[in-house]
Design a protein around this nucleic acid. Structure first.
Length: 166
DNA sequence: GCCAACGTTGGC
DNA sequence: GCCAACGTTGGC
């Protein structure tokens, strides 16, 4: 199994939106970067785990977890001229852009902020913390994933919230 | 194929 | 709102 981190601006789409979605599942559409596309199309597998990250907000933070529940398939928003992610060069017969489905798994009672992630030895190579690493979906190691969950659990416990996520 | 111009991302 | 970092575009 592999681990990933998905970035999203909560004003566009938040963990709450995913939690409240039908079947708590949504397609991760609108990704228009080739490196990210390759990960979505080729690398992500059903059951893979996802750290859900809120960017461009205060504070920026990992706010929960999700699962990949459908592997890469064509991003149909590229075909729709009215969609803001429309891309005329993507053809139905030969799609340029792909997406996966993600399903809500957990929401941290107390998010793990970017600030808290910095300086942790286990996370010293984490892509999110690298300068200029703008990839909106990115790989995370098992160690990094677990380190974030450990912090989330410790914070939840300190705040008196039960949080039993593995 | 080079590379300048431009657009986007995203932390601050 | 600023701006550094990066990706894409398009003229040559």
């Amino acid at each position: 199994m592999r681990y990933w981190l998905f970035k999203t601006e909560p004003s566009e789409f938040s963990i709450e939106d995913l939690r409240k979605a039908k079947k708590q599942t949504e397609p991760w559409d609108g990704v228009r970067n080739y490196q990210a596309r390759n990960l979505l199309r080729d690398e992500m597998k059903e059951g893979d785990r996802v750290l859900f990250y809120h960017s461009s907000t205060k504070p920026t933070a990992v706010v929960g977890t999700a699962r990949i529940t459908r592997e890469g398939y064509p991003d149909h928003t590229a075909f729709d001229p009215k969609n803001k992610h429309h891309d005329p060069k993507s053809k139905k017969t030969e799609p340029t852009w792909f997406m996966v489905d993600v399903t809500f798994e957990s929401e941290f009672p107390d998010p793990v902020t970017l600030e808290e992630l910095k300086g942790l030895v286990e996370l010293k190579d984490m892509m999110l913390l690298r300068r200029g690493a703008r990839l909106s979906v990115q790989p995370v190691t098992a160690t990094e994933f677990k380190a974030v969950l450990t912090i989330a659990k410790a914070k939840a416990k300190a705040a008196g919230h039960p949080y039993a996520q593995r």
